[in-house]
Write a protein that binds this DNA or RNA. Sequence first.
DNA 1: CACTTCTGATTGCAAGTAACAACCGGTGGT
DNA 2: ACCACCGGTTGTTACTTGCAATCAGAAGTG
Lengths: 175, 175
Amino acid sequence: MDAPRAERTDLLPVPDGKSGCPINLTVELLGDRWSLVVLRDVMFGDHRHFRELLTHSLEGIASNILAARLAKLVDAGLLTRHDDPSHRQKIEYRLTEAAIQLVPVLVQLGTWGARWLPTSPELAIRAQLLGQGGPEMAERFMDELRAMHLAGRPARPDGVLAELTRAYQRAAGIA
Amino acid sequence: MDAPRAERTDLLPVPDGKSGCPINLTVELLGDRWSLVVLRDVMFGDHRHFRELLTHSLEGIASNILAARLAKLVDAGLLTRHDDPSHRQKIEYRLTEAAIQLVPVLVQLGTWGARWLPTSPELAIRAQLLGQGGPEMAERFMDELRAMHLAGRPARPDGVLAELTRAYQRAAGIA
DNA sequence: CACTTCTGATTGCAAGTAACAACCGGTGGT
DNA sequence: ACCACCGGTTGTTACTTGCAATCAGAAGTG
């Protein structure tokens, strides 16, 4: 069980396949098919319960995968679990500050996807609006998410989230 | 083979597990363990050849995975293949404009990771510098990448890339 | 009380993907 | 002739994903 490799000393091949690079650690945590999609649905769709995420999601995540992702995100400190007064078995998942600070990441991902990938127009609208809104709009959105998920206040009808949702519904032709 | 599901008409469960959502499409393309890490090494490490990416990478990607990712990225239009005059078998991978426009995504990912994950300080410095530099610095970096990868000019010694590399080496204590 | 629905999951299985190590044919310098 | 280097490929093993069926507890309805 000796280690005959690693002759170089400058650029180190890290033994256990990990590295302290910020991009690498973030990709290690969120770089899979579903983690960011789940967070997207919590943020933009305001889906906070298991069934809601399971059935209202556009892409159709499997229930075991969703359960595993939620557990991982809770473990990573991006979501917190809360009892729901309306049903003893119901669990509410809320965003943490760490998750809310992922908004700029999602905005950039959405902006890039809307620019370079074959997105459907009605879904791309939210990404375009947020991207055009710049850091100020992202800041407003993050403050709104803080009010909703950290302070427990309801979504305000004149907020960014409502504006995005209305733009989407208008584009999707919902009468 | 009838389809007894899909009673809802508002929020559609897309049949083939895909959706035109920009975030979803981007995650579908780049949401894996290695794609963004490879692009990071091409951008920040200026590694343009297979062996370079294989051995100089911090995380130790396997050669078959690297080959598969390079092929996928070329196929997706994020990298292009070029003959290298110095060796008939040598292939140079260059960034495309689409890949260069991923810089803001990587900056945000790095900034978030440096803030919320246990990064090693010397590797976090580049992310912090780029994050603090704001959109202007990212723009300058993208212009530099365009000059190097699209126009084929060498890296300028007073550029963003050189500055980041120097900051890293200083922090890593390379004498 | 029985019946149904809703809650957040879990289980078993098939298929796909990642990791690891060994190896390949062609290239070019000595 | 030799050998290091080039971008990969192959084979095997281990793990992850996707799908469908199922679960037990909780609540609503008759």
